[in-house]
Design a protein around this nucleic acid. Structure first.
Lengths: 207, 207, 207, 207
DNA sequence: CGTTAATCGAGACGGTACGTCCTGTCTTCGG
DNA sequence: CCGAAGACAGGACGTACCGTCTCGATTAACG
């Protein structure tokens, strides 16, 4: 999380020291994040979101936002994080089906908006390591699910024992992203893309 | 190119009609593009570039910029385009070496900045089809080089005859992009990444 | 005047150098000053006037105001200056009547608002000499009229030859100001105040 | 005083009802007032004083201030009141010396800051009768001293029997205030001002 | 050679949003 | 109940850019 949680530490150390003063209104956090998501839903682009609009929609003062997030980007990152639906759970029947499901899961519903915003935030990651780390805290758990699917398949002998799992992860995550970027291009595959990708990757990864 | 070339038509119709009035200053075009690139070089992020700063650095009036490009993004796209060094020419000795070279070519010198800006412009592509097409005019020639390398290798029998070339293109272009995004992540491979990627792709693509 | 007239110098030096760029819109100056005065008329106190409200009422961008005045106070001073109605012209029949008229002139119509704002701006004068000088450019002409009335009466022998005219000016201008401040106080005289004051001053000033 | 003394009533009614709960910290009152005065001393203008700064400097919560004063202006009035040194006591040798002393007493030391703040608060008096009355409670005792000096002189035959004492008070208090406002103006008298003023007033007031 | 028309640098225009600051109120805890 | 602490909604501040516009001054080709 990126919120400037001056107050509570996530890892509690024995007897907790309560912060003095009026505690932050937890509903405000939700209202703000909801407002961001709402604006993204209505709205055109992530860049077009203004803090002032968020404050207005959330029924909140601007200061209440700036008290929690240092700037617009940090807020957007957290909004993205709050938006990522439940972690998808692979069924475990076959590597192929699991991977296809995991890839497809990123392209529908919440996850669709999620990847849209993700794209908008890339510039921030490129320049701000802190921001990048924050984002990774969001992404890594999802990457980990895929990692475990691969790891299990290696152990079960379904995939090559010397498979470079990290590289394979990138090979599964990268192409969909580019495919999305170039989706206007008629030469870029669309139908059955996920299946074809998984098949191609597995072809080089099979035991 | 995205420039609003009101003056010259690209498809010349026999005897050309010269536009009346003072012709545009060609040096201004260069000065503006150079200024953008200069600011990107000094500067932090592509989003932080302002037309006003560009105009100032180029020693040019704002109107002179807006006469040529419809908005900031269009200018950035053209700046990116002007910046992409010469198209890389594969040696043709082996698919593997050619692909590695093509992937690596995007990650050094000019091309490094190029991909940084590319990332900044993604949001624009996502929302504006016109912008996306403009950008593709820049990218497609480079993708085409890789496409031809693959095509030749299929014809020479080095790669499988039923290889999905478009999918393979994405598999070669996508992972490096993600790898760049997640470069802070210690788990993400770094050294020898291009070689490993090409090997993995070829393993599934070999005849 | 306090306006940051970077452009034109009031004292022209032979051949005038025209400022480059689009010239300032003179109507905007008026619209802004009118808006200030309008808000003062509607409004409660001079302190309650916000630049944003002025800009809105004048149909003008905030930058257009800040381009002309460095801050709110400077704007108010100029608004006061623009508001001071025509200089009152004494009839010249008798010192007494002239002075009574001049004192009373400050307490009606425009001048009433004028002195209200004046009071609001006092703190600024106290701290900022530049602001004070600006204000004096507004006040001094009016003081000068009274000064001339006194001077003429000294020359005509109606008043003492060794009269301290500057002191007398203060004795005529100061009491009305305090009387206005303390107007809630039942002990402070109200009716016939101007006449009584002039009589008292003349009693000590008569030849 | 303007303080909202909810707790203690000044006129005790037989058996006193002790307020329940924790009594107010009397040191806080002093600390707050001291903080205001301190900020005025350091600071530039009275308008620039913020409750937050006062609270911080006094080491006090904002609520503690608002529990005692309704708003910033009321606080400033009380600070002024607390600051006015002891009431000056005229020696009684001669009207002239007494009046000069009383006028001069307002222009040195504490009293100097006192008149500065007074100027800052004028706008409040103009708009808020309540505030004005509060302020008069501070000023009137001082005016009363001068009133008594004049009254005694009338009774002793030193001044005219039909002297308008209230008018004369204004004639003695108003000019110094204006003189202070216009102190940047080279034409406004400075040296020996108090003496000259008293002399001029007495000239018209003498028996 | 003068007219015409689009260019140039410069910078003002109406706006929008920024991130900071302060106001006056409210809400927690501990004394 | 008072105290310090500090969060809250609201709103103005002064700044920075946006994309458009309007200046006087160039700069060609057309007539």
């Amino acid at each position: 999380m990126n919120a400037m949680t001056t107050v509570s530490t996530e890892v509690e150390t024995g007897q907790e020291r309560k912060a003095p003063g009026r505690p932050r209104n937890v509903q405000a956090d939700e209202a703000i994040l909801d407002a961001v998501i709402g604006l993204l839903a209505e709205g055109q682009s992530a860049a077009a979101i203004s803090i002032e609009a968020v404050a207005a929609k959330a029924g909140v003062g601007k200061a209440t936002i700036y008290r929690r997030w240092a700037n617009k980007e940090a807020l957007l990152v957290d909004a993205v994080a709050s938006m990522k639906g439940p972690l998808p759970v692979p069924e475990g029947k076959s590597v192929r089906d699991d991977l296809i499901m995991l890839i497809t899961a990123n392209r529908s519903g919440y996850a669709k908006r999620y990847s849209k915003i993700t794209a908008c935030l890339l510039p921030e990651f490129a320049k701000d390591e802190q921001m990048a780390r924050t984002y990774q805290a969001v992404v890594e758990p999802r990457r980990d699910i895929m990692r475990q699917v691969l790891r299990r398949s290696v152990e079960s002998g379904e995939l090559r024992a010397d498979l470079d799992i990290e590289l394979t992860l990138l090979m599964l995550a990268g192409p969909p992203m580019i495919q999305n970027m170039l989706r206007w291009n008629p030469r870029v595959p669309d139908e059955g893309f996920a299946e074809a990708l998984v098949d191609a990757v597995l072809r080089g990864a099979a035991a």
